[in-house]
Write a protein that binds this DNA or RNA. Structure first.
Length: 262
DNA sequence: GCGTGTTTAGTTGAAC
DNA sequence: GTTCAACTAAACACGC
């Protein structure tokens, strides 16, 4: 009997929950984050079953994105306008699936209130920063006092977050590039400052979502640079513990499934 | 208008 | 039997 392959479900419903499918989509992207439309595309490309009744499962998928704390909505970068936000996985969501298999979740991922509030504050600050940036791009008066005073800036540390109880997280440190993140305050003021020179060469900070491509910056627009740096810092904080292991498609005697590299 | 995002409510099935 | 995760439906708000 031939082993099932990823595409062999045909019109059969794949044995993955919407959460698992979404996680797959996010982790298959080089930036570890995707807009909703790309998540849809990933699923329909790989699983023909989901090419039907799109309204039904897409509604369920959106519900999951909003309902589950394991998914984090990241505002778009100001130089990447478009509809909807990007979605990524919370680093602590890694132990959701038993043995890294997406077939089954170990437990529901739930952030504690403080963690959730802190994360929401940071993301809201980022969205506000983006709006301020866009307002400036449109030659609208920018509330410089707000920017310089840190009113928009979350003066908090992103990672690691205090956790009231120990959480079993797969040790991915060996897979991470040995590049300590630069120590700098996570504020708009600090981000607007020039990058401090480094004494020793080191790999680029992970992740760098996309190389900055700014047709606007000649000379480099400090607000754009800051926004990009802000995003990189935010995502580095969010995903520091989970890059770069990837979900890998594996065939076993019983199942074909995505599983976490180890 | 449509896509996106949030919220509520109900149902189902598996695990404990 | 209870609990919990997952699924589904629906309504609504918001922004492009």
């Amino acid at each position: 009997m031939p082993r099932p392959t990823r595409d062999s479900y045909g019109d059969q419903k794949p044995p993955f929950s919407y959460i698992a499918l979404t996680a797959m989509a996010i982790w298959s992207s080089p930036e570890r984050m995707l807009p909703l439309s790309e998540i849809y595309r990933f699923i329909t490309d790989r699983f023909p079953y989901y090419r039907r009744n799109t309204q039904r499962w897409q509604n369920s998928l959106r519900h999951n994105l909003s309902f589950n704390d394991c998914f984090v909505k990241v505002p778009r970068r100001p130089d990447r306008p478009g509809k909807g936000a990007y979605w990524t996985l919370h680093p602590q969501a890694f132990d959701m699936f038993e043995n890294g298999s997406l077939l089954r979740r170990r437990k529901r991922f739930k952030l504690h209130k403080g963690e959730k509030d802190s994360l929401n504050a940071e993301l809201a600050a980022l969205a506000t920063f983006n709006r301020a940036f866009l307002a400036r791009q449109a030659n609208a008066p920018l509330p410089s006092a707000s920017l310089s005073s840190g009113m928009y800036a979350p003066n908090v540390t992103l990672c690691p977050r205090p956790s009231p109880e120990p959480i079993e997280v797969p040790d991915t440190s060996a897979l991470l590039p040995a590049c300590p993140r630069p120590r700098r305050a996570f504020t708009i003021d600090a981000l607007l400052e020039p990058e401090p020179s480094r004494s020793s060469p080191s790999p680029p900070v992970q992740p760098q979502p996309t190389p900055p491509r700014c047709p606007l910056a000649l000379p480099p627009n400090p607000y754009l640079v800051a926004a990009q740096r802000y995003h990189a810092e935010l995502l580095a904080g969010l995903q520091q513990s989970c890059l770069p292991p990837l979900w890998t498609w594996r065939d076993t005697s019983q199942f074909s499934h995505y599983t976490l590299n180890s």
